[in-house]
Every structure is written in C-alpha cells, then in structure tokens.
Simulated assay, not measured.
Amino acid sequence: MRIGILNSGGDCPGLNAVIHGVVGAATELGWEVIGFRDGFEGLLPNGPGHIKLDVDRTVGILKLGGTILGTTNKGNFAAKIGVDNVALVPVEIMDQAKATIKYLGIEALIIVGGDGSLTTALQLCNEGVPAVGVPKTIDNDLQATAMTFGFDSAVATVVDALDRLHTTADSHQRVMVVEVMGRHAGWIALWGGIGGGADIVLLPEIKFNIDNVARQVNHLYATGHRSVLIVVAEGAELEDGSLMTREQMDAERRQVKLGGIGEYVGRKVEQLTGKETRDVRLGHLQRGGSPTPLDRILGTRFGVKAVNLIREKKFGRMVSYQSYHVGDVSIEEAVNQLRLVQPDSEVVQAARSVGISFGDR
C-alpha cells in the first residue's frame, strides 16, 4: 500500500515527530510513504513535488523543529477567512490534485494542519479522496482535541523569555510587556504566564481595561515589587472591541495580520503609571526550535494513530487527544469548533489565586 502525507499552514515544533510516527508505523505494515512538499501545493503538476519517505530518510528528525517537507499558508488552496467563513478550493485545482494522487497510486492521504487545512481535507474526502487529518495548531484552540503538538514547545519559549526578562526587569525596576501568539484563544498567554510567573495576563476571552492594568502595576510596586511582567495575547481586544493589526487584509490568506497590542499596552502603562516600560514581541520564536519531549511524544503518537486510521479504513476522521488517550473524531465535527479559555475555568481561578490579574477588575 502507498500512502501520502503533507503539512499545511504554519509550522510548529513536532511536525517532524508526526512524520517520524507515520513512517515508523507504515514501515511496520510494509507500506510505502510519499511526502508532498510545501503543503497542498505539492499535489499540483507544476508544484514543488514529492519525495519518498522511509526510515533512512527520516532517521534523526524526531528532535528537529519545523518540517522536512516544508509547508505554506499561501497558494492555490483554500485558506480560512474567519471563525466560520471558509473559501472552497476551485474545482480545477481540486481536479489537478486528484489526478496527481491517482497517478502516484496514493491510496490514502494524511493531512497535518489546522482547521483551515482540515476544511480542505474534508473537501477532498467529499470528492472521493480517502484522507485522515492530524490537528496542528500551537494556539491549542481546536475543540475536538484537548491538546495539539507544538503548544507545549510554544509555552516553553514564553516561559524561558519571561525568566530572562524578569532578571533585567528587576535590575532596572521596569515593567516588561511580552506579546505572544493567540488570535482567538489565549492558551499560550495563560499557560506561559502562569509558568513564567507573570503578574498580569491579558487574553482574548477576558475583556481588560487599561486603567485596571495600570492600577495593578501601581499596586505591585507599592507592595514591594521591583518589576512587573505582563503577558498579552496578540488577539486581546482593546477597550472598544477592536484588534491591533500590523497590516491590512492579506490578499491571499484573507486574514488580518495581528500585532502591536504589546507595544500599545506598554505605552499606555508607562503613561498612566510613570514606570519605565519595555515591550517584547516573541512572534515566530514561538514556532521555531526543537520540540519539547511532550511534543515529540504526542506528535509521534498522532502519526501512528493516523496510519492506524487508514489501516482501519476510517477516512474522514481526525486524530484527537482526550484524557491522555489518542483517539479520533469526525473531521466535519472538528473544524470551525474553537476551544477557548473559559473565564471561570479552574486554571483561570488558579491563576487569580496566586495573584495574577487579567485586567478585568
């Protein structure tokens, strides 16, 4: 049997672990694996092409960040427009992809991506291509799975940054504002903030007021703090409900590029408190580097499960992690269902109990 695999959308630590799991499990079954380069673009006749993946080709990739296959969030295939608004792949592009799959004798396709990529996977399934999905988003915001690989590595990057910033902030008695990823969901900011000892965490799900933030900063200095650490997710809303953006709508991705909320918060805090403030935007540092042990293990388990779904002919399904068990759910049920931080959740209450402010009171 010959199967295919591709990565689509943004990269993150753990993608190579998935490839490692797929190749290992497929080899045990005597199957051949073809990897398509640069996401869905590798399915097109004039695209970047494909490579044969075997144990010799994938030895040692478990510890590597990024993906040896490459990926893209641009090009000819559908991109997610909004939370619910999705564009379909044009018929002629889909026909070219199906022709490539047929020509190469691919009997099933593993698609590793977020809900935009998995929506494309669902369209392929509906047009007769046997496909299974593996969820990939460092934002950890897919409702159908309790955790996605790459999230733990992103949190580790945030925690390391906060550890480093805390020492320099203490030395100069400064406020440090760290902007992290999180368009709709604030999981990276929340977990990174707790793990890194942040004083204030600002999330998309909890409406903050800058006056409350400034008041908390003054309170912390008045009670003996030499510095204050603030973590803010890029998707945290301003007081008027708007988002900070660095660029307008991207013509290909049709999605606004967020950024600048950290700079805004830092500037306002300095104006309102008089405390010297610096802001840092971690950006793609959160996507890079080697995956943590947890992400290596989770990615490997996801890859093995994807192969098992093909073996069981459970197409149109997505790998899912719930209660320490790797199972599967329907792709159709999984896409467009965001898992957001609940303001009254146990983890938020735990953060409040150790003195973390969310700027809402």
Rank of each mutant, 00 (worst) to 15 (best):
Q337M: 08
G196L: 08
L44M: 13
W187S: 03
P343E: 10
W187F: 15
E41A: 06
L190M: 10
R254I: 05
F358D: 02
D152N: 14
N46K: 12
G116N: 11
I110F: 02
G150V: 08
I138S: 04
N16F: 03
T148Q: 05
A78C: 02
A97E: 01
V269A: 07
D160E: 15
E270C: 11
T148F: 04
E247C: 11
G241L: 13
E247Y: 13
V265F: 04
R352C: 07
I210A: 13
Q255T: 14
G14I: 03
H172N: 10
V213Y: 11
T148H: 08
F358Y: 13
E276N: 07
E312T: 11
T277P: 06
F151Q: 00
A131M: 03
T273F: 12
G113E: 08
A154Y: 08
I68T: 12
I138C: 10
S242W: 06
S345K: 03
A185V: 09
V129Y: 03
T157M: 14
R281H: 12
T27P: 02
L88F: 15
M147V: 09
T292A: 07
V134F: 00
M94A: 13
V265A: 06
S227R: 12
Y321G: 06
F151M: 05
G116L: 04
I19N: 05
L243C: 01
Q216N: 15
G193W: 14
D344R: 01
D115W: 06
R2A: 08
T148L: 08
H184S: 04
P135Y: 06
V307N: 00
L229F: 09
N7V: 13
G10R: 11
Q216P: 03
A161S: 14
G39K: 07
L165V: 08
Q173L: 09
K257Y: 11
A25K: 15
L294H: 11
L124C: 07
I81T: 11
A236E: 06
V155C: 06
G274E: 04
L238P: 00
G35V: 02
P291E: 01
E107D: 12
F77E: 12
G182C: 05
N140F: 09
A78R: 03
D141Y: 07
D279F: 12
A236N: 04
T119D: 12
S171H: 07
T167H: 10
A25W: 02
L258I: 01
G82L: 10
L29K: 15
K257E: 14
T100D: 07
R361V: 13
Q216L: 08
N209A: 09
F208L: 03
L298Y: 04
H172T: 07
R311I: 00
Q96I: 02
